[in-house]
Amino acid sequence: MFMCKDVVENIMGYIDCELDLQTLKELEKHTGDCPECMTFVNTYKRMLEITGKLKNKPFVTPEIRNRLKILLKSKVKPV
């Protein structure tokens, strides 16, 4: 029998569309009948959506860049 556990353990394959047809059918059937798994899948997808957008967060401030420049300069000074 297809259990919640099987949904969880196949979730990556499901998201990446890598499941064989039989597993896919069973997973979708179980998820359709099991609100816990439906919520699991929805929150999992939502998580990937959000974390995928973290990439565009700017990190390096002008201060950090400036300190890099100063450091590189100081390191190549002749002794």
């Binding site: 259990m3 919640c4 556990k5 099987d6 949904v7 969880v8 353990e9 099991c34 609100p35 816990e36 798994c37 919520t39 699991f40 929805n42 929150t43 997808k45 939502r46 959000i50």
Partner: peptide, 24 residues
């Protein structure tokens, strides 16, 4: 893993559903 020893998610996921919260 999020499931219990019987392999079910019963009572573990749904009550904390945040998938359609607009503030997240």
């Amino acid at each position: 893993a999020p499931y219990d020893e019987k392999g079910t998610l019963m009572g573990r996921i749904m009550y904390k559903d945040w998938s359609s919260r607009p503030d997240i």
